[in-house]
Nucleic acid binder design. Structure first.
Length: 111
DNA sequence: GTGGTGACGACAC
DNA sequence: GGTGTCGCCACCA
């Protein structure tokens, strides 16, 4: 259950709900927000979140393939390092066990 | 009010 | 199977 005035603020809420050691995809969040066809909006929202100085575990949000897209945009040192610290194994800029660590907001948040 | 852009996704070739 | 292209919706100039 997430409500906000703006679309990207809802994205912040969902991302902040991602448990440690788990990751999700832009498409999953977009689907939870009712815009599965607009996963781009999620990525864009996260980009704005950095500009807005909003602290969210953006490193836990990857693309559908589990690739660390946006690591260059991440203001931190590297998303991969943070993921590995949470017990997530990263292989070649991608999640090694994507299916196992995948966190679906639709199911977790009981849409 | 219109146009362009964007950390993606799915489909076509 | 890999690459290329289109589409998608919300926000900013």
């Amino acid at each position: 259950m997430v409500k906000s005035e703006s679309f990207f603020e809802m994205v912040y809420e969902v991302v902040k709900l991602i448990p440690a050691g788990r990751v999700t995809s832009y498409g999953a969040i977009a689907a939870y927000l009712g815009m599965a066809k607009s996963a781009r909006m999620v990525g864009w929202a996260l980009n704005q979140s950095i500009k807005s100085n909003v602290e969210i575990p953006a490193h836990r949000v990857l693309n559908r393939n589990g690739l660390l897209t946006g690591k260059m945009h991440f203001k931190g040192e590297s998303m991969q390092c943070l993921l590995e610290k949470e017990g997530i194994k990263v292989k070649d800029n991608a999640i090694a066990e994507w299916d196992k660590v995948f966190w679906d907001p639709r199911e977790a948040l009981k849409l």
